[in-house]
Structure formats: C-alpha cells, structure tokens
Simulated assay, not measured.
Amino acid sequence: MASMSPCPVPPEQRPQEEFQQLCTSWFFTWPTESQQGLDKALLISWFGILPLTVLVASGSWTLRNDPPRLLAAGAVAAFVLPMLLLVRQWLGWSYVHKRLLAEQVEYEESGWYDGQVWEKPLAWRERDMLMARHEVRPILGRLARAMAWTAGLMLVGGSLCQAL
C-alpha cells in the first residue's frame, strides 16, 4: 500500500514545504499578516508606478492640455501594476492551497518530467487540510478583497476620467 511507505516526494515538492517557501518569500508574505500590510505594499507599488503612468498619459494631445484628466488617467493606469501583483500572488497561493487539499501529491522524481503520484497518508491529509483551511484560505480571502477593491477603483477612476 502506497500510503504506508515512506514519503518518496522530494522535500521541496511537498505541499507543506511549498507553503513554507511562500511564507518566507518577501513578495508572498504581503498578505500573510493582515489586510493593512497588503494594502500598504500595494499602495507603495501604486505610488511607485504613478509618475511613469502620468508621463505616458502626457503623450496624449488631449490630456496634455487638461491636467485633471491627465492625472486621473495616470492614476487609473497605475492600478494595473497592483492588479498584476495581486494576480501573481493569487496564482501562487491558490496553487499551494490546491496541493494542500489534494489527496495525492504529484511530483517529479528526477526532474526529467517523469510525473509520479503519491497518495498522502490520512495524518498528512488531515494536517494539510487544517493548514489549507486556517492559514491559506484567509490569505486567499485577503487577496480576493484587494483584487475587488483594485478593480472597483479602476472602474470608478475610469468613469471619473470620462466624466471630467
């Protein structure tokens, strides 16, 4: 029986190890602590890209002579970077979430794409399920809220650009 044998999955490909790798990554730790920490990092990225987006928007003849619309267009365009960062974080955390919830672990034994599957023992499944529910799911919730706010701000900003 495969579940009684020792774990053949290389340590770096085990779901819990993948979770730990994300938790120690500078980029992926943004949503781990609180919504405020994530919001602060996203706001910094937005302010960081804002001068560039305003500069690009100033290339438009119609916007060049209308400073309020120029700033509004640059501000809306600057939301693209935080949204891309959120999507990348969502992909990483949802991948680990899926691996933690799975009853089997897919892995590469030699690195030559020789896909293997190992069934997790019951104790591993229970531990992984708890980790997925109580540690990863709140992170995904924070990311979902941040993506909704960012998309909403982009829509409202786009509407304001049209109204100005």
Rank of each mutant, 00 (worst) to 15 (best):
G92V: 08
Q21A: 15
L164D: 00
S34N: 06
E135D: 12
Q36T: 12
R137K: 15
T62F: 13
P121L: 03
L81P: 03
M129E: 13
P67H: 00
L164G: 15
M131T: 15
F28V: 03
W46K: 12
A77L: 15
W93R: 05
R64A: 15
E119V: 08
H97C: 06
W93K: 10
S159G: 15
E108K: 08
G48H: 11
A41V: 08
D66V: 05
E33G: 03
W46T: 00
T32M: 12
V80F: 13
S58G: 11
A102L: 05
M154H: 06
A77N: 14
P82N: 08
R99T: 08
T53I: 00
R64C: 12
L42E: 02
A123N: 09
R127S: 13
V9K: 05
E119D: 10
A146N: 03
P68Y: 03
W26Y: 12
M4Y: 13
G111Y: 07
M154S: 13
L86G: 03
A148E: 12
W26C: 06
Y113C: 08
T29N: 08
L63P: 09
L130E: 14
W118D: 02
S159A: 15
P51F: 10
Q13T: 06
L122E: 15
P67G: 00
V56G: 00
R142K: 12
W112I: 05
R14M: 13
I44Y: 10
R69H: 11
Q20K: 14
Q21I: 07
L71N: 02
L22V: 10
Q162F: 12
L91P: 01
K120W: 00
V9H: 04
V76L: 10
E109Y: 08
P121Q: 05
L38S: 03
W61L: 14
G158S: 11
G92Q: 11
P51T: 07
M129G: 06
R142D: 09
V117H: 08
L43H: 13
E126M: 08
S5I: 04
S58E: 04
L42Q: 02
L130D: 12
L42G: 03
L101H: 06
P15Y: 01
M83F: 15
L140W: 08
A148K: 14
L153H: 07
E126N: 09
L101K: 15
L55P: 02
Q20Y: 06
M154V: 14
W30D: 10
K120Y: 01
S25P: 02
Q89K: 04
A72F: 05
P82T: 07
L91W: 10
F79H: 13
